[in-house]
């Protein structure tokens, strides 16, 4: 199986925050929008839409290959499932020391609402097993978020870059 990652085209983000809501629902007991709102412990989101200058950017765990949160975890609660796979937290081992929060370069690991447990994006591993896309990706109305193979992503970037290079070259030739 080729390794995929969640990628964001920030020029398309409308800041509607559907990804935030559906992330929380995916991490609820019922996995269903209206029932999840009524649960005793309302579910929490693992992704957030942030504003920076004139852009809005959905941010979540990048599932780093050499993840600082994994290296620093004293109880080996934070684990990398394998190359190109998710970084997840094994709750029963977590002692809540918050070191992972301190070292995360993206600031996307957080404490839960009560300040007791660490929560972070788990790349929707349960949904992936069922053959579904991560909840943020499948719910995004503008396709800002996509779940793509890295090669596919870089291929698109290369194509766009090549277009620019060629048109610049042609412009110069015309002059």
């Amino acid at each position: 199986m080729k390794k995929k990652a969640i990628v964001a085209d920030i020029e398309r983000c409308m800041a509607c925050k559907t990804c935030e809501i559906m992330c929380a629902v995916a991490h609820s007991n019922s996995k269903e929008l209206f029932s999840s709102m009524l649960e005793d412990q309302p579910p929490e989101k693992r992704i957030s839409v942030e504003k920076a200058e004139n852009f809005t950017v959905p941010l979540q765990c990048r599932h780093c290959e050499d993840a600082p949160c994994v290296s620093i975890c004293p109880t080996k609660a934070m684990i990398k499932l394998g190359p190109g796979q998710a970084v997840i937290l094994e709750k029963e081992k977590c002692i809540g020391c918050k070191m992972c929060i301190l070292v995360c370069p993206f600031g996307v690991i957080k404490l839960d609402r009560e300040g007791k447990a660490i929560i972070k994006c788990d790349l929707c591993i349960e949904r992936l097993k069922e053959g579904k896309l991560p909840a943020c990706v499948s719910s995004c109305p503008t396709k800002t978020l996509e779940f793509k193979e890295i090669e596919e992503f870089t291929k698109n970037v290369k194509e766009k870059a090549l277009e620019k290079i060629i048109s610049a070259f042609q412009d110069r030739k015309k002059k």
């Binding site: 983000c13 409308m14 800041a15 925050k17 839409v49 809005t56 109305p141």
Partner: peptide, 10 residues
């Protein structure tokens, strides 16, 4: 409330 929803704004 930031960022505000672009669908609503537009």
């Amino acid at each position: 409330m930031q960022p505000q929803c672009g669908f609503g704004l537009s």
